[in-house]
Structures are given as C-alpha cells and as structure tokens.
Computed example of a mutant assay.
Amino acid sequence: MTKTTRILAASVIILLVSACASQIDAGVAEDAGTPGFLWGLWHGFVFPFAWIGSLFDPDIAVYAVPNNGGWYDFGFFLGITVLGGGSWFSSKKKRRKD
C-alpha cells in the first residue's frame, strides 16, 4: 500500500467514526453557571486524576453534564492536549551522549 492510500484510508475511517459522535440535547444548557470554556479547560487538565478517582468513586465524573456545548468541549480538548502535555512528552526523543 502506498503512503497516499494509507492516509486516505485513515482519513475515511476517522470521518466515519466521527460521524457517530453526538451529544444529547439534555447535556447542553444555556443557564447561567453552566460549565463553559474555562471549566472545560480545567476539567481537561485534571482529567487523568479525575479518571483515576472515577475508578474508585462513582460520584467523580471526568466530564461535566450539562455543559454549554461546543465551547466546553473545545476547552476540554485544549486542557487534555495542551495543558495535560498531550503528545509532547512522547514526541521528545532521548539523545544518547557518546
């Protein structure tokens, strides 16, 4: 398989899987005090700790429902990828000193 074919196949698979993603209407609210971008950023940053806690305590959630939708999701994504380190730690190659 050529590199172009692999990239195209991966793109099609990603698009098909992302088409299944949805959020129930009851999970999106416009009320004052509903978690928004900044809460999403915070929840994304503390995700690893919240996930470990959720394994032992059913009252701990890793994602706030209800939230205000897209802005909360964007903050959550940034919190996980940027503040949480994302792929930065795995992308650094260790250099050998000769």
Rank of each mutant, 00 (worst) to 15 (best):
T34I: 09
I24F: 08
L8P: 00
W39A: 13
G79V: 05
E30I: 00
G84P: 08
Y72L: 01
D25T: 13
L16Q: 10
S87C: 09
D57Q: 06
A32G: 06
D98A: 14
W88C: 01
F77E: 02
R6G: 10
L38T: 09
I24P: 05
W88E: 07
V65W: 01
F74G: 04
L38Q: 08
A29L: 09
W88I: 13
G79W: 06
F89D: 09
V12W: 00
V65E: 10
I14L: 15
F56C: 09
S91E: 15
L41G: 00
I7E: 12
G44W: 07
Y63N: 00
K92F: 14
K97W: 08
D57L: 11
S18H: 12
F45T: 14
L8G: 00
E30H: 05
C20N: 05
T4I: 15
I13R: 07
T81P: 03
P58C: 03
K93A: 10
F77W: 09
T81R: 01
L55C: 11
S11Q: 07
S18D: 04
N67Q: 08
A61G: 06
R95S: 12
T81M: 15
R96E: 10
G70R: 13
A50D: 12
V17Y: 11
G70M: 11
G84H: 02
S11D: 04
F56H: 07
A26K: 11
I80Q: 13
L15T: 12
P66L: 04
A61D: 14
F56T: 09
A26D: 12
G33R: 09
I7K: 13
N68R: 07
F77G: 05
V17C: 15
V17S: 11
D59M: 03
F37G: 05
I60E: 02
A50K: 14
D25N: 14
V17A: 15
A21N: 03
V28K: 11
G36E: 05
L83M: 12
R6F: 13
L78I: 15
G69D: 03
G53Y: 06
N68F: 00
D31W: 06
Y63V: 01
Y63Q: 06
I52E: 01
